[in-house]
């Protein structure tokens, strides 16, 4: 691969430091009808956090605590009602969709269920190159001064990406129906990476996968992070994986971040009741398991 091939161009890593800073994020969901507009449910209120370049921030909390809403706001799938999301000096929180295009390629989201977010008629290649085709004329061309990708360029890029996420490039023309759950999650990662983003938002990207597959994907995420200085915003209810992957953990409860700090500090010295509750139940199961494993081995 030459260095100016499509796969390797894109944004060079920026200097180490703050990648994203969110402050005062609020999001309400409207309920009711034309006649009662004032009824709404606050999903997220006054959420502040930062993510350092190349690091992982994990959001944990019980279901309904607002984790996913924060993730969707950061990826701008939702527009926050108020607050800022600063990326490199620009506040993307209230940007008009037309101005968002350059940021869309820098932030990609990977969902829980890779199957429902892919067209079942597509082959692996079509799934991966789809974002490229959609966004190419707008951003990539403009940024790089290059007119566009040829079919062959795209094929090369897909080949590289599939190898990178641990799939055989020979499978690129297979229908995605022939891929297993873990393989589809790899495909979803490849698709997210095709625009060479800097931030991946991983919303429960591990749930529904088997233990051994989870471990494979977790390792893959660490590999990719090292290789490309990727920044992750990780949403998960699996504390074990969070501990393994995250540099910073933010615990959410009732739409607020109740505690945020380095992983080891949160795990070893939790200060909030919500954090403790999560930890205790996770640790209870863990302790029993550890006892069972330790008793014999």
């Amino acid at each position: 691969m030459s260095t100016n091939s499509p796969a390797n161009r894109g944004n060079e890593p920026e200097p180490i430091g703050r990648f994203l800073c969110a402050s005062g994020l609020c999001k309400k969901y409207a309920r009711g009808s034309l006649w009662q507009k004032d009824r709404s449910i606050t999903a997220v209120r006054d959420v502040d956090f930062e993510i350092q370049h190349g690091k992982t921030l994990a959001l944990v909390g019980a279901s309904g605590s607002g984790k996913s809403t924060v993730a969707r706001c950061v990826a701008r799938l939702e527009r926050p009602d108020s607050g800022q999301i600063l990326i490199g000096g620009t506040d993307i929180a209230q940007l008009h969709p037309s101005e968002l295009a350059p940021f869309r390629s820098r932030i990609q989201m990977v969902f829980q269920d890779p199957v429902t977010s892919m067209n079942p008629r597509f082959s692996a290649r079509e799934v991966i190159e789809e974002p490229l085709i959609i966004s190419e004329p707008t951003i990539i061309g403009r940024q790089s001064g290059q007119v566009g990708y040829t079919r062959e360029d795209r094929r090369d890029l897909v080949r590289t990406l599939m190898a990178e996420v641990g799939l055989s490039p020979d499978w690129m023309d297979r229908s995605i129906l022939h891929f297993s759950g873990g393989q589809r999650q790899r495909l979803a990662l490849a698709r997210a990476l095709v625009l060479r983003p800097q931030l991946l938002v991983l919303d429960e990207a591990f749930s529904g996968l088997d233990l051994s597959t989870q471990a494979q994907i977790a390792n893959l995420l660490l590999d990719l992070q090292e290789a490309h200085q990727l920044t992750y915003l990780l949403i998960s209810h699996d504390l074990a994986l969070v501990v393994h992957l995250a540099d910073v953990i933010a615990v959410m409860s009732g739409g607020r971040i109740v505690e945020i700090g380095p992983t080891q500090q949160i795990i070893l010295n939790p200060s909030e009741a919500a954090t403790k509750k999560q930890l205790v139940s996770a640790k209870l199961a863990t302790a029993k398991f550890a006892a069972a494993v330790g008793a014999q081995g």
Binding site: A215, Q216, N219, L245, T263, A290
Partner: peptide
Amino acid sequence: IATSSVVTGAAKSARLPVI
């Protein structure tokens, strides 16, 4: 796998055992 991911909460950058 279960032991390594659950019990240790191993330091980041260490890889989990896999099949």
